[in-house]
Design a protein around this nucleic acid. Sequence first.
DNA 1: GTCCATGCCGAACGTTTTGTTCGGTTTTAT
DNA 2: ATAAAACCGAACAAAACGTTCGGCATGGAC
Lengths: 117, 117
Amino acid sequence: MDIFAKKLKERAAQLGISNAEAARLCGLDERRYANYANDQREPDLATLVKIARTLGTSADYLLGLTDTATTDKRSRLVERLTVAASSLPDDQLATVVTQVEALALPRQKRPGKKTPV
Amino acid sequence: MDIFAKKLKERAAQLGISNAEAARLCGLDERRYANYANDQREPDLATLVKIARTLGTSADYLLGLTDTATTDKRSRLVERLTVAASSLPDDQLATVVTQVEALALPRQKRPGKKTPV
DNA sequence: GTCCATGCCGAACGTTTTGTTCGGTTTTAT
DNA sequence: ATAAAACCGAACAAAACGTTCGGCATGGAC
């Protein structure tokens, strides 16, 4: 599956992270992940799912069954944010959400009922 | 991957064919395919793709990635983050990405090969 | 009833593939 | 120049795979 290896590298590039970082995010041994990215080994299905989920993409994309390349620069930034945020512990994630939402909602005179984080 | 096995059987049922017929359609040994459908073996990635294509479905479906209900608490937090971040101007978005990535990868000061924001 | 085509399954065996470790080179930012 | 991080080839034990064999159950044909 050379396509899988290519997509793996392509995805890491989209996210602006190294393969080693992608490995860490996925909770996989760095050498092991590198074997996937270099088309020397193939993961089992559970690992494939874990990678797709962690990198915020689909198995179909990683297997070349769809070509949904994210070319938009802003979209990729948002994806990087999603991937990074997903690896945070609950409390840090909650904090980040609060802060970014504060940034996003510039000035509403009366902040209405908002779901507490 | 018990999900994969289930989806395999589910798909054959949807198509109104036996597992043996599905195996033949995919050009796979009947016993081999049965091992997949019985959750005793797993196919390599190329075979997974062949099955998905032959049965007219997606790898995401076969792997149970489609029905990712966003009912869980963390997923909703991440969704809120995505929505909020998407409304930010470019520079603020870039800043947030940098900060969250720094949080996500608690590591030494030396970043390796990484695409700059 | 007998036959046999079809679907399905467990066990076993030889082969292939994987995960991991070790050591080393290359790259990058200070 | 230095050190941290990224990256990679080789090698080996362990795990997973594909395939074969035999067996069981069902249903239609004769």
